[in-house]
């Protein structure tokens, strides 16, 4: 691109502006490591809780969810490291980041006040997760994540109608179809 202005007409200027804005908007970055980390973490927690409920008499099967604590710590460390390394940010990068961060703030009250909603915690969380998954799919223009968002939504609806044990299996299914499959497909494209 040269720095000449004598031939730049109004139409050319507008075309240049829209072309550059499109380029900047297309520069959305994504990190599959968060999708895969949380995909595995939540799938294992769901299956672990299902296993404990079904095959043992252990009175506190929900302890398996404690694995989300190290996953959170690892995510924070990754996030800080990436924030330092990555300088070029688009507005869509920021929107995607806050979309997922907001989920971290929304989920704890749902768990804390789960007793007020008849312990329908799993379906509510699946429903809440459908939203950022779907929107991230739109931002990245990546269909498997759009389908993933729909899977979360569909599993959430079924979850409302089944018992607590089956909810765990549905939770694992939702995470496998909503996070893990799109995550690995995205990773393959990236490589």
């Amino acid at each position: 691109m040269k720095d000449e202005n004598k031939d730049l007409s109004a139409e050319q200027s507008l075309a240049l502006i829209s072309g550059m804005i499109r380029q900047a908007q297309g520069n959305v970055s994504y990190s599959t490591k968060y999708i895969l980390l949380w995909g595995w973490c939540i799938a294992l927690a769901n299956l672990g809780m299902y296993g404990l409920m079904k095959f043992s008499t252990y009175p506190h099967p929900y302890v398996v969810w404690l694995i989300t604590i190290p996953a959170t710590i690892v995510s924070i460390i990754y996030g800080i490291k990436e924030g330092k390394e990555k300088i070029t940010h688009s507005h869509l990068d920021k929107i995607t980041m806050w979309l997922w961060l907001s989920l971290f703030f929304i989920i704890p009250p749902v768990i804390t006040f789960g007793y007020k909603i008849n312990f329908q915690i799993n379906p509510v969380i699946l429903l809440l997760t459908a939203f950022p998954t779907f929107i991230t799919g739109i931002i990245l223009r990546f269909k498997p994540l759009l389908v993933g968002g729909i899977c979360f939504w569909a599993c959430s609806i079924i979850c409302f109608m089944v018992d607590a044990q089956t909810q765990m299996l549905l939770g694992a299914l939702a995470v496998i179809t909503g996070y893990l499959i799109p995550g690995y497909l995205l990773k393959r494209i990236k490589v």
Partner: peptide, 15 residues
């Protein structure tokens, strides 16, 4: 100017 306008158009969409 082509280059300066290009830069500004990119930066308007970026943090």
């Amino acid at each position: 100017s082509q280059l300066r306008l290009g830069v500004m158009s990119l930066l308007i969409s970026m943090e």
